[in-house]
Write a protein that binds this DNA or RNA. Structure first.
Length: 392
DNA sequence: TCTGGGGTCCTAGGACCC
DNA sequence: TCTGGGGTCCTAGGACCC
């Protein structure tokens, strides 16, 4: 029997901003961009009290909470604090840490539990040390598998510690509405409610098995087992290697201006290439996606024969994908994704010249300079039309 | 004032190979 | 005559998470 803890930072972005700027303490704040199309990335509890939620459009948030303070996001700071709390756990508690997202992780704490130390003691200690050494609040769920641990951490926030043992699921889990269940999203929840499956207890109910089988695809059994407290308890360390790298941006106004789109495409592509190189990875599949004014996403991808990380080549392929598929469309958003990734060392490729370059401590600044240069170069040379000539 | 951005995983259909 | 079956990879779209 394993003891799994799910550690979830409380309103992470907003908490980091409060930590960095104590003047924001005890005021309702949200982290969001500041244009007409921005949405809330994170809201602290004072803002949530008024009904503000993550992913809510900014104009709506300021409408229901006029005194809310809008703080611009500092993503590199969030990355930094994310590393800090993960490092603390890995150094002081357990190497068995599965990084789930920027602000949460699973930890196998089985080996830390003994006659004198209960799982709750262990988690009290983790929570206290994160607060003391990093300055951020978190909530922790404890259970015998990952599903229950994650459900548990949601039950009490902020600074909560909640167990969800199998003996407790009847009282703590089954009464919850279906949309609270992990991996049941909006679509599926709606479908289930229409068929009178309204609580997690209804999913756990043996009499509903056939109905579930009909309504959900093969996943029905995972949900059924989860609701009955049965789930995966293995920490997956491989999850810590990225499977895709993407960047996208919504234009301030919908556009069909080829030049404007091209500049943005090159900028986004440059950024994902930078991350690719930083991760010391190579890519085989390049995709370009757009969102049209009807909010539909369209994705076009191209898979190469070999793994590459050459900046110009990736730019050329992205340009070709765009010009082959999306010219003359009015678009709301454009994005670039690199997927089918592999770690360089796994391909046994000898380090090349650029390795030294990228590893410089001030690589970021240098990259910024080259990025600006390359945008200009690209424009001058009209990379995208070159791409067409070169590849057709 | 109107709905972000970064991810993972799954599915279905088609191409291709044996 | 008229069309098997398994396996793998690629593509596009969509559900879901934070």
């Amino acid at each position: 029997m394993k003891y799994i803890a799910h550690i979830d930072m409380d309103c992470f972005f907003a908490s980091v901003e409060e930590l960095l700027n104590p003047k924001l303490k005890n005021k309702p704040i949200i982290v969001a961009g500041r244009n007409k199309r921005s949405v809330v990335s994170s809201a602290n509890y004072l803002a949530r009290k008024d009904g503000v939620k993550a992913a809510m459009p900014l104009f709506m948030a300021t409408k229901i909470c006029p005194k809310v303070i809008v703080v611009l996001p500092h993503f590199y700071k969030y990355e930094e604090y994310s590393e800090k709390f993960i490092n603390l756990i890995e150094k002081k508690f357990s190497k068995m840490v599965e990084h789930l997202s920027i602000d949460e992780c699973f930890v196998d704490i089985t080996n830390l539990v003994n006659k004198n130390t209960s799982p709750i003691d262990v988690c009290n200690n983790i929570q206290r040390q994160i607060k003391q050494h990093i300055g951020l609040p978190c909530s922790i769920g404890i259970a015998n598998n990952k599903f229950l641990a994650k459900m548990a951490s949601d039950l009490k926030k902020p600074m909560g510690i909640t167990t969800l043992w199998n003996s407790e699921i009847k009282n703590k889990l089954w009464p919850l509405p279906i949309h609270n269940m992990l991996w049941i999203g909006k679509r599926t929840a709606q479908l289930l409610v229409e068929n009178n499956i309204k609580t997690i207890g209804d999913i756990a109910n043996e009499n509903n098995k056939d109905l579930l089988k009909n309504l959900l695809d093969k996943n029905w059994e995972t949900h059924y087992l989860h609701a009955n407290g049965i789930g995966d308890d293995q920490i997956d360390l491989s999850i810590n290697i990225p499977k895709s790298i993407s960047q996208s941006e919504t234009f301030l106004n919908d556009t069909n201006d080829f030049n404007e789109i091209k500049i943005k495409l090159i900028e986004l592509t440059n950024n994902v290439i930078w991350t690719l190189k930083q991760q010391k990875m190579l890519v085989k599949t390049i995709s370009v996606q757009i969102k049209t004014i009807d909010f539909k996403l369209h994705n076009k991808s191209f898979t190469l024969q070999n793994y590459i990380d050459d900046k110009e080549d990736i730019l050329l392929y992205a340009g070709k994908i765009f010009s082959d598929n999306f010219t003359n469309k009015t678009i709301r958003l454009i994005g670039v994704t690199l997927s089918n990734l592999i770690e360089k060392h796994k391909l046994n490729i000898n380090s090349e010249l650029f390795d030294d370059y990228w590893n410089q401590s001030n690589a970021k600044n240098k990259e910024f300079t080259t990025l600006v240069e390359s945008i200009n170069d690209s424009l001058n040379a009209d990379l995208i039309s070159i791409a067409k000539d070169k590849l057709t």
